[in-house]
Design a protein around this nucleic acid. Sequence first.
DNA 1: CGCTTGTGGTTATACCTATTAGCGGGTAAG
DNA 2: CTTACCCGCTAATAGGTATAACCACAAGCG
Lengths: 363, 363
Amino acid sequence: MNRPRIPRQSDIARLAGVSQATVSMVLNDRAGANRIPETTQLRIREAMAELGYVPNIAAQSLRGGRSGLIGVHTFERVFPTAPDDYYREFLNGIEERAVESGLDLVLFASTRKPDGTRSIYGSGSNRMRLADGAIILGFEKNDDEIARLADEGFPFVFIGHREVAGVAIPFVTADYAAAMTPVVRMLASAGHRRVTYLAAPLRGFAQRERLEGFETAATGAFEVLSVDVRDTADVTADWVTAQLAAGATAIVAETFDLARALRLALDSAGFTAPADVSVISLDSDPRGEGPFSHVRVPRRAMGRRAVELLLAVIDGEGDPSASGSGSVRALAEPVHCDPPTSETVGAPARQAASAASPLTIAL
Amino acid sequence: MNRPRIPRQSDIARLAGVSQATVSMVLNDRAGANRIPETTQLRIREAMAELGYVPNIAAQSLRGGRSGLIGVHTFERVFPTAPDDYYREFLNGIEERAVESGLDLVLFASTRKPDGTRSIYGSGSNRMRLADGAIILGFEKNDDEIARLADEGFPFVFIGHREVAGVAIPFVTADYAAAMTPVVRMLASAGHRRVTYLAAPLRGFAQRERLEGFETAATGAFEVLSVDVRDTADVTADWVTAQLAAGATAIVAETFDLARALRLALDSAGFTAPADVSVISLDSDPRGEGPFSHVRVPRRAMGRRAVELLLAVIDGEGDPSASGSGSVRALAEPVHCDPPTSETVGAPARQAASAASPLTIAL
DNA sequence: CGCTTGTGGTTATACCTATTAGCGGGTAAG
DNA sequence: CTTACCCGCTAATAGGTATAACCACAAGCG
């Protein structure tokens, strides 16, 4: 009805008997620098309170060139249908850190190609531009789009190791390789000498780093009995039984879904961990605590780090490839993974028992 | 290195040999109204594509135009820590519908008071203005902030029934009351005559509508043995046992967390549903399929509807209290809930059995 | 010829903020 | 005696967009 218009600085200025510029200075605590006396400041603040002034964010953004928005682009859905949400922890960290810096998150829902898949340039122009920068996550490889993005000078950051020919891409990853050392040490000191490495079919950076790190760390400690690349559907009771029969006393699962599959396989074969076999997952389960002792992939911390890295890239005059600020380099360091706890790690089961008695149950 | 500055409308204009105003018109499809011929439009669009133009959100907002952004504000965290994410399905629907309209979502993470709680005006400014409108969800009551928001004429919409004195607030809710009819019918036709209603301590609109709807529907069909307001922690094996001993043959759980608690209580008391007692939950579990037959709260559809309602409010010249467009009214209708399936509904157990035999287990 | 109508745009302006340059007289430093 | 700097502010401006108001010209009509 009687909406008296949202008050702006000039309204305050009139009420306080000063100019709009003075109001702006007092508001932004530049009053000291420009020697506005306390009395005037007080008058202005009173007027602000009286009118209920709230700065117009659009005008601030326009003036300052920054919108205070951080884009988040996922090549898959942002809010997945399954309650089993792989991105959730990353987003958690991103949100948390964004809150701390007073930034808002833009989910680029509009970036969608007609066929339903996500694409940055699919809808014509790069809507991402409306944010100050973006964090990109997802497995799909879209090298050309990413190269173009970098070429435009748009500040962005990946979560997960990413390499595109000819373009230096800032990304946040975890130190998977280093995390393998405590895993190997834990197994070795428990007495294991023959270990099966259950590997995922998808060989991304994360998987390759785990395997390489594991093999390196295992050298001299124990024998990696087999590196078995296996789809979750093929992780069966029979497979587990065969591994134990072959002499493995411990199994290492490369990813959380392999760990889940392994849990089911163990159950149906009638084995328990660590009584019959020791198990460590090299990945944490997004659903919460996984079925086994596991390396703690610091997804939340990675999300936080991504925001920090992005801010550094934005401030670093947008050129991530420049020898640039040391902070960018430091922030791009892999994030430390916490070592696994030892619930499902024990002494090796006696071979005869592990090979024979459960078999009768399994068959 | 050679960043040629982000292109603006005047850059396009120069390239296409027209004025900036013309570019704006073509961009916003006002070209028809102002009779810009196809050929000119084409020239302008080509120039846009060539320069990779993206509108400046801040400028658009400042000017009062549309930014293509829909705000999402939650008084709690957007991405909660628990994998058990209550908002997820709403957000799913919101995202889905936003994609269809080519809108992007802004998660207002910055709206946070110093003490960590969320507040719209707490951080000093109403960042929401950046968006064309906002969808607000959350349980906290912040009547003054909401009233202020409405007073400013900012278009927003609630998910969940919301009432603030003196302000007409558009909201999206589900038709809980109507959903009670099939529940009652299902129980009654299975032969139940004495039913316990397990109610949540928090008596929000959703809870009150369920209870009232249930009582109304139950009139003449069966006796509502007791309406028991109970914290989840107090839903124990003993409580269940007492209910059955008192003659209840069915229990209705008002919320998903009560349903979960009830599941645990039944388990520990050694009862199964529907053999010993029939159970229906009046709420669906955000984690997926809940432990019992349940009314399907269409959260995803509500999310979609919220976007539609918001768009209507935005188009309705920002005054939701105006007698306004019929579409707003239609969109504000409660969303239909699908009736429960009947897995955990069966014939009433014989009273003697249900009262005696499990007791020995429970004690 | 004088008038209207239509065409294809252009000019000017408002939106609101943050910042730079400056006002003109006095005092301190060189 | 010149220069520098202080006071407490204000005026002017930029930032990119959307829109109302306008304009010059041409065609049609009587």
